[in-house]
Design a binder for these strands. Structure first.
Lengths: 222, 222
DNA sequence: TCGTTCTTGACGGATTCCATACGGCCGCGT
DNA sequence: ACGCGGCCGTATGGAATCCGTCAAGAACGA
């Protein structure tokens, strides 16, 4: 069942949305401000977030950024402000759709369906991956056996582990983790790959899961 | 570069959209009716389709169904009709977003970005090619049976495999892989073709899939 | 200030690429 | 039949590049 987190500071609208979504057999949680929205999202892992921009505590765009820092969960934004700059900011921050109040509830539900349909087509990535002796939890950002990774190490490992068996080019890793202007600085990759293998491989000198493809990039082999 | 197919029957709007998209470095093709839209989509394989619902020949929703029959390419719908039932029909038919005319061009572009960002995140589907006993994955850069290729070997194999059955001239291979100034160095081709056959053909001395056409070039036969 | 993380440099060793050489096959003219 | 040249396949050694690792300084936050 699809889990939806609805974030809005108007109790009346919140209630109306909840009733309509529950009637369509969605599982619903609600939040009244940005802080509790981020907290609930981290704990509950909703499949979709409906977010009102006009929250009392945090700016809506910052909430989007906060979510996008660790999850790709689709975000549908609601807003009373219909100016195009608001829409552009929200969409570019990482929102998937933008609905202006007042809106038809049926249209809103159709957009929910469209966005979550698009997402479930892609949703194949598991939250937990086995890497040799260690079990890696992508959501909780933890690894069995008391292994701790630095932020950069996590970033690299996530990219590799999310594409099991596939080659990840040096260019892709560098632009994702450091930015496109670091495309030439391959020594970062060597440095951090050594670190990752030291922490995760049984024999770091002869890696089994974090494989290098000379001249091209690296590959995670389950 | 992202390829966008724009479908609209108003030449003026078509022109405005094309100019704006080209200015943002998209590659753009246009169609004026549903039939040519479906034809161009099948031939050109755009990364995104912008579709006006009010076409002269085919109903817009049927165009969406036609596209969804064989591709998951994102579709952004434009429409003059702002009724919610139109939006619901289009979205449920498989559209990814719905923009009502008149619209702000910047908002339109932001929605294009949002939709195609969501799509490229998911676009990991393997493109597999069968080559005798081996299955070649062009995206993950993997080959069944533990076969590993060097960067140059991959480069050559990709060019051959992407044009199955077609002759690839020596000139074309050399300019693509080594650069146009290496057009005379045909011994590179012999060198690497030997390597590829050694790794991929069952009997490298009598190749079945990587065929040489004397005096012309090479050919991949599935 | 301390501890952690990120950057940067340097060097031996592994991998890949380049360059050359040699042998086989085929068509052609003598 | 024979030699010859053009074209292709294969082998091999050295050059160039790329990679793993250690170590130390810089930047950052508690």
């Amino acid at each position: 069942m699809t889990k939806i987190l609805v974030v809005d500071d108007e109790p009346q609208l919140l209630r109306a949305l909840r009733i309509n979504l529950v009637a369509r057999h969605y599982e619903v949680a609600v939040a009244g401000d940005g802080a509790s929205a981020l907290r609930q999202a981290a704990e509950w892992h909703p499949d979709l977030v409906v977010l009102d921009l006009g929250l009392p505590d945090i700016d809506g765009v910052d909430v989007i950024h906060g979510l996008r820092g660790w999850t790709q969960t689709p975000i549908v934004v609601l807003s009373g402000r219909s100016g195009s700059q608001d829409k552009i900011d929200a969409l570019d921050a990482g929102a998937d759709d933008f609905v202006t109040k007042p809106f038809s509830i049926e249209e809103f539900l159709a957009r929910i369906r469209a966005v979550s349909r698009r997402f479930t087509v892609q949703k194949t990535e598991p939250a937990r991956v086995q890497l040799g002796d260690h079990s890696v939890d992508l959501i909780g950002k933890t690894i069995s056996g008391g292994v701790r990774l630095t932020p950069t190490e996590w970033h690299m490992l996530e990219i590799l582990v999310r594409n099991p068996g596939n080659l990840i080019t040096q260019r892709h890793l560098l632009t994702e983790v450091w930015g496109s202007e670091y495309v030439k600085e391959t020594h970062y990759l060597r440095q951090y790959m050594t670190q990752l293998r030291k922490k995760l491989e049984r024999d770091p000198a002869h890696p089994v899961h974090l494989i290098t493809e000379p001249g091209m990039g690296y590959r995670f082999v389950p």
